[in-house]
Amino acid sequence: MSMHTAPGVRLLPNAITVLAMCAGLSAVQFALNGQLKGAIAAVAVAAVLDGLDGRIARLLDATSKMGAELDSLSDAMSFGVAPALTLYAWQLQDNRAGWIVALIFAVCMVLRLARFNTLLDDTDQPPYAKEFFVGVPAPAAGLLVLLPLVLTAHFDYPGWWANQNVVMVWMVLIAALMVSRVPTLSLKTVKVPPRAAAPLLVLVALLAAAIIMFPLISLAIAMVLYLLHVPYAVYRHNWLAKHPEAWGAPPRERRAIRRRTQRRLGLRPPLRRRVAGAARRVRLARRHSHPDGPRRSWRSLELRRSRNDGAPR
């Protein structure tokens, strides 16, 4: 029996999806027991498993409509319902507005996933659209919204970031980013040049060491860096929309097109090299110069002034 028809192979990606959903929902149980680090780890494990199930399904040729629907339901539970209930059980139980904010976040997650599924069947999108997500993706949003919880677990102290109003505003902000039209980069289409493979592996090793030694603060820094990349993603999306000649070009040709565009707009600084035919720098005469020419001292002429020069004759 071939690999793409084996029932066991088809079951593997769906099993990983179910494990991701169980890991995400376990975060609520950890939060109810006051185990903040366990709640964060559960959502992080769900994000890792969510990134593996689709790739394994495509690698094993085991994609199916049931797997796609199950993946969307798992994302809604793991990164929408679970983080919202985790933050509610942690800090918002005694606030009526806290439950409303938790509902808003969960609903925005469902709406974001529904729009993502409809965009998969849209054939009118430009070729560069596959390089971006529309809004913040579900796993990233599920981790970003837990940033106040991550900081509290790392410092072991509920600072200003753990204030109820700050937590609610943060949840609404991440929910708005999910359903917005703000483009974010998709790592699925990132191509690494051969020269950058070795340095990238070194960075991966350093990142793994940082996660092992300082897991919580490393996760917080990664989330902040992800937010900081959004302006670059917006700039890159707008630039590609205005330059159709770069849609199908490889990265090297895209950089060349960008450099030509910058020269055309006059954005590059002028070269400091000497150009043939250019005028040299001219020194202007000093204001208080001697009328007969520059005055020279006795010492510059290497002459010794006589003692009797100043005596009357």
Rank of each mutant, 00 (worst) to 15 (best):
G277T: 07
N33K: 08
I40S: 06
W170N: 04
R304N: 08
S289F: 00
T63N: 05
K242N: 14
Y128Q: 12
D71C: 08
A233W: 10
L36M: 12
R195C: 00
D124I: 00
P183Q: 08
R195D: 09
P139C: 05
F214L: 15
L177T: 05
N165H: 07
N308K: 13
A205Q: 02
N165G: 06
T63L: 01
P139N: 05
I257V: 13
R115M: 12
A278Q: 15
R299H: 12
P312F: 11
L267F: 06
D61K: 15
L149V: 03
P183E: 07
I212T: 11
L146E: 09
L149C: 03
L87H: 08
T86R: 05
P215M: 09
L200I: 13
I56Y: 03
G80M: 11
A249V: 08
T152S: 13
L206H: 04
V81K: 03
I221V: 15
L185H: 11
M171P: 04
Y88C: 06
R112W: 02
L36G: 02
R272C: 01
W298E: 06
A42C: 10
W160G: 10
L25A: 11
R254A: 01
Y128L: 02
L185V: 14
P126E: 08
A233H: 12
A106M: 15
A46I: 02
A279F: 00
A89W: 10
A153I: 04
S289C: 01
K188F: 00
L19S: 14
G248R: 13
G293L: 05
L228C: 14
M21E: 01
L120Q: 15
W239H: 05
